[in-house]
């Protein structure tokens, strides 16, 4: 569905992405992991057209993502940003209903927003709060509600659990897994939290040194040498190959 070929992006002299190849299939949930500062967010921004790559191609449904194609892509797209990126000047429900309000009455949009807030575990009492009044975990949930408000076909999650304690992090993971399964949406999750990968992903790719160093199913990931090296331990011993 989304195909990235030979993507390159530098900032000044620093080459952040150095030939990234990655494919995201329809209905698939892909996790991209990598250390902080390896260019995971930059990769998302290139797909979204927020950063201009120097080289490489990004195809969506087989077509290059030019202006018109990207507009169509974004029409069925939702994203949860690392810091939630809620609009400070709008209340929580107005944030969630941002897209909806452009084509329906405020009453209807608010109704849908309240449903989506309930889906992510936020009660109606949060609807009229301003983003500044929310805790970090609540802001993430509200950001998640905004991402799914218009039933997107593709959802990106940028470090959904970073900055949350393990209990809240697992709760967000469970929400994401549930939403992705329910809606059948194609999901791309950026994280450096392996627990999230296990819960959210079908497939996991490792971004390292500007390239994809590993790409494979989550099921077998414990045995992958590149991943093990990334995680700072030797590959999990497989049955039959156990060390004496």
């Amino acid at each position: 569905m989304i195909e990235i070929r030979g993507l390159q992006k530098s900032f000044g002299a620093a080459r952040v992405l150095d030939g990234v190849d990655l494919t995201l299939g329809q209905g698939e949930s892909l996790c991209v992991i990598g250390q902080s500062g390896t260019g995971k967010s930059v990769l998302l921004k290139c797909i979204l057209g927020l950063e201009a790559p120097e080289a490489g191609r990004i195809l969506w449904q087989g077509q290059p993502l030019d202006r018109a194609a990207r507009a169509r892509f974004l029409a069925g797209f939702g994203m949860l940003f690392q810091g939630a990126a809620l609009f400070d000047s709008l209340s929580v429900w107005q944030n969630v209903a941002f897209r909806l309000r452009q084509r329906m009455s405020d009453d209807r949009a608010r109704g849908i927003a309240l449903d989506k807030l309930a889906r992510v575990g936020l009660g109606p009492e949060t609807a009229d709060l301003m983003p500044a009044e929310l805790s970090g975990g609540m802001a993430k949930r509200a950001g998640l509600a905004r991402a799914i408000a218009d039933d997107p076909k593709v959802i990106f999650f940028d470090e959904p659990t970073t900055g949350l304690d393990p209990i809240r992090a697992r709760a967000i993971d469970a929400l994401i897994r549930g939403i992705v399964t329910e809606t059948g949406a194609t999901a791309l999750t950026i994280t450096h939290d392996m627990a999230s990968v296990g819960l959210i992903g079908d497939r996991v790719a490792l971004l390292q040194g500007g390239r994809i160093a590993h790409d494979g199913p989550v099921a077998g990931m414990d045995a992958a040498p590149a991943l093990a090296a990334f995680l700072g331990r030797s590959p999990a011993p497989r049955a039959g190959f156990a060390a004496p």
């Binding site: 927020l50 939702g78 609009f87």
Partner: peptide, 17 residues
């Protein structure tokens, strides 16, 4: 500037605005 730094401006783009 704060909106830019906290990715609110990027969020606008992803909301087709």
């Amino acid at each position: 500037g704060t909106m830019r730094v906290t990715e609110q401006i990027d969020a606008l783009v992803t909301l087709s605005t």
